[in-house]
Amino acid sequence: EVAAPFSEASTEEMEDEEVVQRELRWEPVPIQAAQLFDAASGVNVFKRASRDIVAALIDVLGNKDYFIKEYKMILAERLLSKVDDDIDDETRILELLKLRFGANSLRDCEVMLKDMADSKRIVANIRNLARPRGGLGAAGLDRDFSAVILSELFWPPLFEGACTTPEAVDSALQAFGSQYKALKAPRTLHWKPHLGVVDLELCFGDDEEAKEFTVSVAQAMVISQFEQRLTWRANDLAAAAGIAADQIAEKAAIWVNSGILRKRTDKVTREVTYELVEDPAEQQERPNACTRPDLAVMSQEQLMEANMKVYESYVMGMVTNLESLPLQKIHNMLKMFVLEPVYDKTIEELEAFLA
C-alpha cells in the first residue's frame, strides 16, 4: 500500500525529466526550413517539397525569376568548366524546366547550350581545314585544343581578368582565330584565356603515378613555373606567371591545398615563399580544402556590387556637396538624374551597398 504512491511519483518524475531533456535538445528551425513549414496546420511540408524540388527552391528563393537567374549562372559555370563536349544532362534538365516555365523564360539558357554545340562543330571544321596544311595543323591546332565561342549577350556576366599564356597556346589561339575569321567573316574572336580550363598531369618520378588536375589557365601557369625552380618568392612567382601580385595567393591555393606546394611566411619580414614538395609521400591534401578551378561566372551578389559601383561617384558627389542626406532622398535623386546607365535599384539594395 505504501509502495504504490512512491512508484507513481517516480514515474511522473521520469516523465518530467524526459520533457526537460527534450526541451534542452530543442533547436530553432533554419530560416529556409521555416519557409517550408505550414504554420496553420503545424505540419512540415518537406515530404511534399521533396516531390517537387523546383517548387521548394522557388519558395526558398522568393520568386521564379530569381530561380531562373541562379539556374542560368549555375548552367554557365558547369558548361565553362567542362573539359569534354557532353551536354546531354544539361540539355535534358533544360527541356524539363522549359515545360515548367516556358521556352521564353529560358531562352538565354537555350542559346548557351546551342553555343556549346556550335563550338564543337566549328572546332571540328577548323581542325579539318588546318590538317592538310601540315605545319598549321601540327603546330597551330593540337588535337587536345578546344574552344568555346560564346554569344556574349546571352551569357551571364563573366569575371574579367588577364593572364600570360605559353607560346604554344598563343600560337594555337592565333591559328584558330585566323581560320575562324576566314570561315565566319566578318566575325572575329576576342579571346578570354583567363576563363579557360586546362587538364594537367604532374609527374614526380619515373616510378610514381601521375596526378591529374583540372585547373584554370592562371593556376596552370603558377605550377608550371616550378619546372625551372623549386622555390619562389610570392612576388617573383606572380611576375613570372603573369598574375597580379595580390592574386597569387588565390591562384596558388589549389596547389597548397593539394599538398603539391608548401607555403612559408617569414615571421619577421612577412615575406611569403612557395616551395615544391618533390616527394609524393609528403604531398598530403588538406581535408575539406577547395581543389577546384577558379569560378568563371559572377554570382548575384558580385554582380550587384559591380553594378552599384557605377553609381558610387554620384553618391560621393551628393554627400560632398550637400553634406548629410537621408537615404530616401539619395535614392530619389539617383532615379531622377542617373540616366546612363539607368538606375533601377531598390532602396533596400542601395542601403545594403552603402552600409
Rank of each mutant, 00 (worst) to 15 (best):
A40L: 14
R264P: 02
Y274K: 03
R133F: 15
W191V: 01
A124M: 13
D266F: 12
V2M: 08
A239D: 15
P287R: 04
R143H: 13
S299R: 04
F101Y: 13
D115W: 04
I260R: 00
L276T: 05
R131V: 04
V123T: 05
A253Q: 15
D206R: 12
E212A: 09
A172V: 00
A281Y: 06
S119C: 08
F353C: 04
R100S: 06
A355V: 09
V342L: 11
N63G: 03
I248H: 04
T165H: 00
L153R: 08
R51W: 15
M308N: 02
E340Y: 10
I68K: 04
D207V: 01
D108E: 14
K329V: 15
E348M: 08
V256P: 01
E18A: 06
K267H: 12
W155T: 02
I53K: 12
E152N: 10
K251C: 03
N44G: 14
A245Y: 07
N332R: 08
A220V: 02
P166S: 13
C203H: 10
S313L: 12
V123L: 10
L158Y: 04
L200I: 09
E77H: 07
L339E: 10
A185H: 13
L339T: 13
S50Q: 14
T91C: 10
L173W: 03
R107G: 02
V310P: 00
L237S: 11
V123F: 08
P193N: 02
H194W: 13
D344H: 10
I74A: 06
E70A: 09
E348R: 08
G140N: 02
